[in-house]
Amino acid sequence: MSIQHFRVALIPFFAAFCLPVFAHPETLVKVKDAEDQLGARVGYIELDLNSGKILESFRPEERFPMMSTFKVLLCGAVLSRVDAGQEQLGRRIHYSQNDLVEYSPVTEKHLTDGMTVRELCSAAITMSDNTAANLLLTTIGGPKELTAFLHNMGDHVTRLDRWEPELNEAIPNDERDTTMPAAMATTLRKLLTGELLTLASRQQLIDWMEADKVAGPLLRSALPAGWFIADKSGASERGSRGIIAALGPDGKPSRIVVIYTTGSQATMDERNRQIAEIGASLIKHW
């Protein structure tokens, strides 16, 4: 067993022997300050990975656009099909120029040879490739089937209704393509630590998230040396920005953090900075 597999395998073990964890309200002060700075709603939740206990939250049951954070859930659904023998990570999918949508930095380079399901999930999570996400959605039956998968997991909140890039419209009070911080955190925890996926698939999912290449300005920018993070960011219209992450010190994840914001007129750089500052406060008061 590799060191990485050993780390994931021990998560349920540590759950039975973990020391108590305590929240620090200073982080919530920073979350509220971020709302003021951005002139927008901010949703935040911090969940103990082992016990599932909510350590701190702000607007945990308000809806926010999922943006590209849905791609982790999508690849979780794909992996569940792999575990059930209904899909193969090595299966090659061919597509055409007509399938390409905006922001497809990986898939646009493989029009001649296609990409495997594994490569598409990697592109969707690590590079947030939109065409990769659409091709993967097709393999499971579309957005409604992803919503059904989540319902079967016990998540009756999170929903995907449209494809890339339309799902990023982020219209106020529109429940399409939205989640709540509490629902997303719970669902992510189930995918990473529960029995829904095999150990190999849980490890694959967290490996893809750990290799995320487009979330550098967010929580990763505040991460001390030696800390672990596996994450997925998202951005969409109407000043929306978000990130879902499993992180912790000593090279292993111990908490789930979900941050969403929407309705801001601030620049992308400012939205990134506010999320990074929330992360810095979280780490300082860990």
Rank of each mutant, 00 (worst) to 15 (best):
I3G: 04
I3Y: 14
Q4P: 08
H5R: 07
F6V: 07
F6W: 10
V8I: 15
L10R: 09
I11T: 10
P12A: 13
P12L: 14
F14Y: 00
F14C: 09
A15T: 15
A15S: 15
A16G: 15
F17M: 10
F17S: 09
C18L: 06
F22A: 12
H24W: 03
P25G: 04
E26G: 10
K30T: 09
K30L: 09
V31C: 12
K32R: 08
L38E: 04
L38A: 04
R41S: 06
R41E: 06
G43A: 02
Y44F: 06
L49V: 13
K53I: 14
K53G: 08
K53N: 10
L55S: 03
E61M: 15
E62D: 09
M66G: 02
T69G: 00
L73E: 00
L73V: 11
L79G: 00
S80I: 08
S80T: 11
R81W: 04
D83T: 01
A84K: 15
A84R: 11
G85A: 10
Q86S: 14
E87R: 00
E87C: 04
Q88M: 11
Q88L: 13
L89A: 05
G90C: 11
R91N: 08
R92S: 10
R92D: 05
Y95W: 12
Y95I: 11
S96E: 15
S96Y: 12
Q97E: 14
Q97A: 14
D99P: 02
D99S: 10
D99T: 10
V101E: 10
T107A: 11
H110G: 07
T112W: 12
T112G: 15
V117G: 00
L120V: 01
I125C: 06
T126M: 06
T126P: 06
T126E: 15
T126Q: 05
M127L: 13
L135E: 03
L137V: 04
L137A: 02
T138K: 15
G142E: 15
K144W: 08
K144V: 12
E145K: 09
L146A: 03
L146R: 02
T147K: 03
T147A: 03
T147Y: 05
A148T: 10
H151A: 12
H151Q: 13
H151V: 14
M153I: 12
M153S: 10
H156C: 13
H156Q: 11
H156R: 11
L160A: 07
L160C: 15
R162Q: 06
W163G: 05
E164K: 08
E164G: 00
P165T: 05
L167P: 02
A170T: 11
A170P: 01
A170L: 12
N173A: 07
N173H: 14
E175I: 13
E175V: 13
E175F: 09
D177C: 01
T179E: 00
T179S: 05
M180Q: 14
M180R: 09
A183E: 06
A183C: 07
T187G: 04
T187M: 05
L188G: 01
R189L: 11
R189S: 11
T193R: 09
G194T: 14
G194I: 03
L196R: 13
L196M: 12
L196V: 13
L197M: 10
T198R: 10
T198E: 09
A200R: 14
A200V: 11
Q203G: 07
Q203S: 08
Q204Y: 09
I206S: 13
D207H: 11
D207T: 15
W208C: 13
A211Q: 03
A211D: 13
D212K: 03
D212Y: 00
D212C: 04
K213D: 04
K213N: 08
G216L: 04
L218R: 03
L218H: 02
L218P: 02
L219Q: 01
L219G: 01
S221Y: 06
A222V: 12
A222K: 13
L223H: 00
L223A: 06
L223Q: 01
P224E: 01
A225H: 14
F228A: 03
F228C: 02
I229Y: 01
I229V: 04
E237D: 12
E237N: 15
E237W: 08
R241Y: 02
R241D: 02
I243T: 01
I244E: 00
I244K: 00
L247S: 06
P249N: 03
P249A: 03
P249C: 03
G251D: 07
P253S: 04
S254I: 06
S254T: 11
I256L: 08
I259L: 11
Y260H: 00
Q265L: 12
T267F: 02
T267I: 05
M268Q: 07
D269V: 09
D269N: 11
D269S: 12
D269L: 09
E270S: 05
Q274H: 15
E277L: 11
G279C: 07
I283C: 04
I283R: 01
K284R: 05
K284N: 10
